[in-house]
């Protein structure tokens, strides 16, 4: 399995599309910060207004609140509350996995390794690695770009930020396993991506919570998307968080966090087991 994982790493990190996607995300952050700079710097704003730039009251309120948030909040909103990492992980997983079946490269793997579970696990390891890379690079780039753009926003509590990034990364593990299950079931990148995003953003978990909530039962914290939102709330952005407010309406407690991490671990194991079952049921084309 080590060789398989090593091969997947080589495949991944020698793939241009990974770096193109990362560059696009960085460009997106840069554009967002430049726009904010334009709206918050009086000199630049005057220049922009002279050149036809129109600023509404709502924009002004956004700009003012932007100056008050910490960089940690910005990162958590960007990566987790906004669903960027969930969507990225879902699309990336679907593309890289379904391609093994459509290109036929999977035949090389499955004719060599009798244990198909190795494939599932190595893929999840790879997705965790790519998620970690994106989280770290985007967080570091955000800090750097804030400084470069001359914003004086506080970083926030570095420990909380580190915990937020770690929790967010852990939260993406069961989602990666879930994405694998969809890929094994469907083997179509587009459909698997849509399903993964749909479930990853918590639509299913939220619906279940609404139904069970009618009977006074709250189980949303046992679903992986909740942990993503919990990650976002660690740095203090729970106000924009649907799940937290839906389930508890309060800040995250350590034991809750641990419980949610434990539930995520169980989901991961369940999805791996199920993915392997599905993979073993189907022929490799």
């Amino acid at each position: 399995m080590l060789n398989l994982t090593r091969m997947e790493f080589r495949r991944l990190f020698r793939d241009k599309s990974v770096y193109i996607t990362l560059a696009a995300f960085l460009g997106f952050i840069l554009i967002a910060l430049i726009t904010m700079k334009l709206m918050t710097d009086p000199g630049l704003l005057a220049f922009a207004t002279e050149n036809g730039f129109e600023l509404t009251a709502e924009d002004q309120a956004d700009a003012a609140s932007f100056l008050r948030i910490t960089i940690a909040d910005f990162v958590s909103n960007l990566l987790f509350s906004g669903g960027l990492m969930v969507c990225f992980s879902a699309i990336f997983c679907a593309l890289s996995t379904c391609d093994d079946f459509s290109s036929g490269f999977g035949k090389n793997i499955f004719s060599y390794y009798p244990n198909r579970g190795y494939y599932i696990i190595s893929k999840i390891v790879i997705h965790c690695a790519i998620n970690a890379m994106f989280i770290l690079v985007l967080a570091a780039a955000s800090i750097l770009l804030f400084k470069i753009c001359g914003f004086s926003n506080h970083l926030g509590d570095p420990l909380k930020m580190a915990l937020m990034l770690l929790t967010g990364w852990v939260a993406l593990i069961p989602l990666a396993a879930q994405n694998m299950l969809f890929c094994m079931l469907i083997r179509n990148a587009a459909v698997a991506s849509i399903l993964s995003i749909f479930c990853g953003l918590g639509t299913v978990a939220g619906t279940i919570e609404v139904v069970t909530g009618l009977f006074g039962i709250h189980i949303v914290q046992f679903f992986p998307p909740y942990l993503v939102m919990m990650a976002a709330s660690i740095s203090g952005s729970s106000a924009s968080n649907n799940f937290i407010s839906l389930a508890l309406g309060q800040n995250v407690l350590p034991d809750e966090l641990l419980l949610s991490v434990f539930a995520s671990l169980l989901w991961t194991l369940f999805y791996i087991w199920l993915s392997q079952k599905v993979l073993c049921k189907k022929d490799i084309c």
Binding site: L2, N3, R10, R11, R14, D15, F105, N108
Partner: peptide, 21 residues
């Protein structure tokens, strides 16, 4: 043949070789 279209022949071979250890 199960090939990665976006890579060269050598790179495809290298992937298979690393898969086989």
């Amino acid at each position: 043949p199960g090939l990665e279209g976006g890579r060269s022949a050598y790179e495809n071979m290298y992937l298979k070789a690393s898969l086989m250890g």
